[in-house]
């Protein structure tokens, strides 16, 4: 049911963990629905120099988090903002239709972390001015 890429990222997830002095932290989802994603960012000169994640959820939720962090590590804030859930799913060689919300969760977790960074650092990110993650994706 899952692609080899999904299974690879589920079995050997990249960038798992926390960043103690993170510049931005974002958490989306809720336990009631069965998935929560938390993203930690370290940002220097507009570049995401480090990223870590923690996820409570199914195999595709863990794989989506892992892939999303890999896709934006080392990228600029602007590049990270362009990451869509579709891009995450495609990079994983696709997700089953019922699991697409996992990739949405990954996109929103990153945007939430960037918004948190913006609020903490005072760096204005125009695109995230009105961003609100949808708590419940189901």
């Amino acid at each position: 049911m899952y692609s080899e890429k999904v299974m690879d990222h589920f079995t050997n997830p990249r960038n798992v963990g926390e960043i103690e002095d993170a510049d931005g932290i974002g958490q989306v989802g809720n336990a009631k629905c069965g998935d929560i994603m938390k993203i930690y960012l370290k940002i220097e000169n507009d570049i995401i120099v480090d990223i870590k994640f923690k996820t409570f959820g199914c195999g595709s939720a863990i794989a989506s988090s892992s892939m999303a962090t890999e896709l934006i590590k080392g990228k600029t804030i602007n590049e990270a903002l362009k990451l869509t859930n579709k891009a995450v799913a495609e990079a994983l060689d696709g997700l089953p239709p019922v699991k697409m919300h996992c990739s949405v969760l990954a996109e929103e977790a990153i945007k939430s972390a960037l918004k948190d960074y913006s609020e903490k650092s005072g760096v204005i990110i125009e695109e995230l001015k009105d961003f609100e993650p949808k708590e419940d994706h189901h």
Partner: peptide
Amino acid sequence: RDMSPLYE
């Protein structure tokens, strides 16, 4: 659990 934010 080491991956889960709920466990922290």
